[in-house]
Amino acid sequence: MLFAPDTEVALRSVVNLINTAANGEDSLRTPADLDAFLDAEEFTGTRAGNEAELRSVKRLRSLLASLWSADESTAAKTVNQLLTEARALPQLVKHDHWDWHLHATMPEAPLADRMGTEAAMAIIDVIRSKEMDRMRVCAADDCDAVVLDLSRNRSKRYCDTGNCANRAHVAAYRARKAASAE
Results as ranks from 00 to 15, higher is better:
residue 157 R to G: 00
residue 152 R to N: 11
residue 105 T to N: 14
residue 133 D to A: 13
residue 115 M to Y: 04
residue 111 L to T: 07
residue 153 N to S: 14
residue 110 P to T: 03
residue 135 M to N: 02
residue 109 A to G: 10
residue 156 K to D: 00
residue 121 M to S: 11
residue 131 E to R: 15
residue 124 I to W: 04
residue 116 G to H: 07
residue 147 V to E: 10
residue 117 T to F: 10
residue 116 G to W: 13
residue 115 M to Q: 08
residue 131 E to K: 13
residue 107 P to A: 09
residue 158 Y to H: 14
residue 150 L to C: 02
residue 129 S to C: 11
residue 144 D to Y: 02
residue 117 T to R: 05
residue 110 P to L: 03
residue 119 A to P: 03
residue 126 V to L: 04
residue 112 A to S: 13
residue 162 G to Q: 01
residue 146 V to G: 01
residue 147 V to W: 09
residue 103 H to E: 14
residue 114 R to T: 10
residue 125 D to H: 15
residue 109 A to L: 11
residue 136 R to N: 08
residue 129 S to H: 07
residue 137 V to L: 12
residue 119 A to R: 07
residue 117 T to A: 09
residue 149 D to S: 11
residue 161 T to I: 14
residue 120 A to H: 00
residue 105 T to G: 09
residue 115 M to G: 06
residue 148 L to Q: 08
residue 133 D to N: 15
residue 155 S to A: 11
residue 161 T to S: 06
residue 138 C to M: 09
residue 111 L to I: 03
residue 105 T to Q: 12
residue 106 M to Y: 13
residue 128 R to E: 15
residue 141 D to S: 14
residue 162 G to D: 05
residue 157 R to W: 02
residue 129 S to V: 05
residue 139 A to H: 13
residue 104 A to T: 06
residue 127 I to H: 00
residue 138 C to F: 07
residue 141 D to I: 08
residue 149 D to T: 08
residue 109 A to F: 11
residue 113 D to K: 03
residue 106 M to I: 12
residue 142 D to T: 07
residue 119 A to W: 01
residue 124 I to C: 12
residue 132 M to K: 05
residue 117 T to H: 06
residue 160 D to S: 15
residue 127 I to E: 01
residue 125 D to I: 07
residue 154 R to H: 10
residue 125 D to G: 12
residue 160 D to F: 12
residue 132 M to A: 10
residue 154 R to Y: 06
residue 122 A to P: 03
residue 135 M to V: 10
residue 141 D to G: 14
residue 114 R to L: 07
residue 131 E to I: 08
residue 126 V to G: 08
residue 127 I to S: 01
residue 163 N to C: 00
residue 120 A to L: 01
residue 159 C to K: 06
residue 103 H to M: 04
residue 118 E to I: 08
residue 134 R to E: 03
residue 157 R to A: 09
residue 109 A to P: 04
residue 115 M to I: 08
residue 118 E to R: 14
residue 140 A to L: 08
residue 149 D to H: 05
residue 111 L to R: 04
residue 136 R to H: 14
residue 153 N to V: 07
residue 138 C to H: 04
residue 127 I to Q: 00
residue 111 L to Q: 01
residue 137 V to K: 12
residue 150 L to S: 01
residue 104 A to V: 04
residue 162 G to N: 02
residue 158 Y to Q: 07
residue 154 R to T: 01
residue 142 D to W: 06
residue 115 M to S: 09
residue 112 A to D: 15
residue 161 T to N: 09
residue 136 R to Q: 15
residue 146 V to M: 03
residue 130 K to M: 13
residue 107 P to E: 12
residue 122 A to K: 02
residue 114 R to N: 06
residue 118 E to F: 06
residue 144 D to N: 06
residue 161 T to K: 02
residue 109 A to I: 01
residue 153 N to A: 13
residue 147 V to M: 11
residue 117 T to D: 08
residue 109 A to R: 13
